[in-house]
Amino acid sequence: MTTAATGSRGSTASLRHRLAERGIDSSLWLMVPALVFALALFVYPFSYGIGLTFQPGLATQEKWGGGVLANYVAFFRDPFVFDSVWITMRLALPAALFNVLASIPVALVLRRRFRGKRLMTSILVLPITLGTVLTAQGLLIFAGRQGWLNRALMATGLVDQPVQLVNNYVGVMLSLIITGFPFAFLLVSSYLSGIDPSLESAARTLGAGWWQRFRRITLPLLAPGLATTFILTFVLAFSVFPSARLVGDAMGSTRVMSLMAFRAFGEQNDYPMASTIALMMGVVELAVVALVLAWRALLYKGSTGGKG
């Protein structure tokens, strides 16, 4: 190799040296397709949507005023729209909370090894395949006025009149539990399996009863996982759409934000207003998520002694 060639090699190498130190080299090309995808299908449309929210339609401007902010004025001033925030919260928060809390004892019970555990787990996971639409259809038939559930209740004499279980708040809540619980259960069991059982044995040798072991060992170790589970199930419940329409009371107690957004988008073709509601949906949801994350940051998150 000639001196000149070595010299030129040297200079490129030094640039490479500097880039290498910062972790930049040719393998970063592997990221390009995913980045192009994210920019084209997520970042660009999202920014476009945010831009749209500042271009209110004429009707909105005339009715609510506020110039470029007319969409936001409409969102906060129009009770028909703004109430949907509370309606959504009233559904999503209790549903997520219930799903997480109910998952803890079930996961604790199913943590033990017994035959048929796999079958049990599979049955609990089954609703994931149902999807919201079949769940809605099933609820309408099973829990409707003439469905088996009401028939059984009346046959056992528990009630005289059929109980209204669908086309209202209860129907949507049931649907959220059926679709959300399995998900919460899967997450909680996986967090639980990450806690080394010998920790509980250790607590036992130190004289802790089952409740003390759960309260002082398992629960604190599980808490960050519960927070994550809550966030993910809340996200699922928050964007409830088909069930609110199909088994809920779409113009009343289950008039959730996604329905309002879709009404503006599909029925009124008011894309700016639809984008505004959609964006506010994201804001509200991420606010709850941020709160839970802030709480979670206060918890112990180190090793739990197991594989987790």
Partner: peptide, 17 residues
Amino acid sequence: LPLTHGEILLDGRRVDT
């Protein structure tokens, strides 16, 4: 691991690149 300083020579030929 790319070097950030110096060089490696095998029989006088640079091999670190």
